[in-house]
Amino acid sequence: MNKPTPLLCACLLGVSALLSSAAVEARDSAAASAQVQVPASLQAAVDASTRTPANVARDVYRHPAQTLAFFGLQPGQTVVEITPGGGWYSEILAPYLRDGGKYVAAVVDPAALPAGGGRDYQQRSRDGLAKKFSESPALFDKAVEVAYDPAAPVLGAPNSADLVLTFRNVHNWRSSGQAEGMFGAFFAVLKPGGTLGVVEHRAKADVPAEDKSGYVGQAQVIAMAEAAGFKLDASSEVNANPRDTKDHPNGVWTLPPSNNHAAADAGKYTAIGESDRMTLRFVKP
């Protein structure tokens, strides 16, 4: 048998080192996720009986206690959540921040959009969230709403927020050409030293801006945040899902909770669960 050449040995050693480095990185990331300490007060907010049962059912996929603890949520902070939708995280954040902090729901201003389906959708979303808040004043009476123009977003007074949170929104901003402006608005509203927490559907690799799958490359999200001035502080695999093959006929909306698939495939997609997601923590220097 021929002996390997020095060049081949060097290449093999290089590959081995890269694989070893990747394994160490994966191990360390998983360990960091496992080591997230959830304060008792935050766990109590997640476990509250006032949460909607259908929302609680998604905790197994969304890991709210660990995710919010990873982002450094504290009860005395001013926290801006971007487009809360139906208020899934609002049910946790608003009561948690009610006495010592401030919860700000940043919603798209329908009046800033041209007449049509987009405006109607945002109006329904805004009205639904307002109804949710008004029906439970004991939880939401101190919640604040900020309506922003997605073409020129302003999320509050400059340097006023401790934490900005966005859950599964980046793909929409990329496809509409608004990502740069949104990340710039996050940077503007945060105090120096403030944190941006991002959860997003994770693609296998970079995807074009016009991609309609709902997935985004993790490196692409990091690049957008860094271009706005942020520094990546840490990443977590707490919302990872290795069962997600990311090749579904209707993108992330094939999976729960959207379940945009044939009835015959329900078992298949239920077994996969919700999408594989990146969880990134950035800091404003």
Rank of each mutant, 00 (worst) to 15 (best):
D162Y: 09
E145M: 05
L232M: 08
L165W: 13
S176I: 10
R126H: 15
K191C: 15
A209E: 02
D120A: 06
P158Y: 08
E210S: 11
K212R: 10
G184I: 14
A147H: 10
N159K: 00
D149G: 05
V189T: 02
V207D: 14
K131I: 07
Q123F: 05
G217A: 06
Q220D: 07
S136G: 06
D141G: 09
D233V: 07
D141Y: 04
G229L: 01
T195C: 04
G156H: 11
D120T: 05
E180A: 14
S134M: 03
H201G: 04
S175G: 07
A147S: 13
H201C: 03
A147V: 14
G156P: 15
V164P: 08
P150W: 07
G217H: 10
L163K: 10
A152C: 03
H201D: 07
A161I: 08
D127S: 04
S136D: 09
V199N: 06
P137M: 06
V221A: 03
P153Q: 03
G181P: 12
A227Y: 05
F183L: 13
D127M: 00
D233C: 07
F133H: 12
H201T: 03
D162G: 11
V154Y: 04
N169E: 06
I222D: 03
G177V: 08
V170H: 14
R124P: 08
E135M: 09
D211H: 09
V199E: 03
D141R: 01
V207Q: 10
P150R: 10
E226F: 01
V221Q: 06
V198I: 08
S160F: 13
V154A: 10
G177F: 08
P153V: 02
H171K: 02
R168V: 01
M224G: 02
G197N: 10
K142R: 12
P208G: 04
G128H: 05
P158M: 00
Q218V: 05
E226I: 02
G217W: 05
A138G: 09
L155F: 00
V144H: 04
K142Y: 06
A179W: 07
T195E: 02
D120I: 04
I222C: 03
G118H: 02
S134P: 03
R202W: 12
S213L: 07
I222G: 00
K132W: 14
T195G: 05
A188G: 12
A152P: 13
K204L: 07
F187W: 12
S136E: 14
T195M: 04
F183P: 11
D162V: 14
Q220E: 06
K231T: 03
A185N: 12
Q178M: 11
A161C: 08
K142M: 09
F167A: 11
N172D: 06
R202I: 00
F140V: 04
I222P: 02
L196K: 13
D162A: 12
S213K: 11
V216D: 05
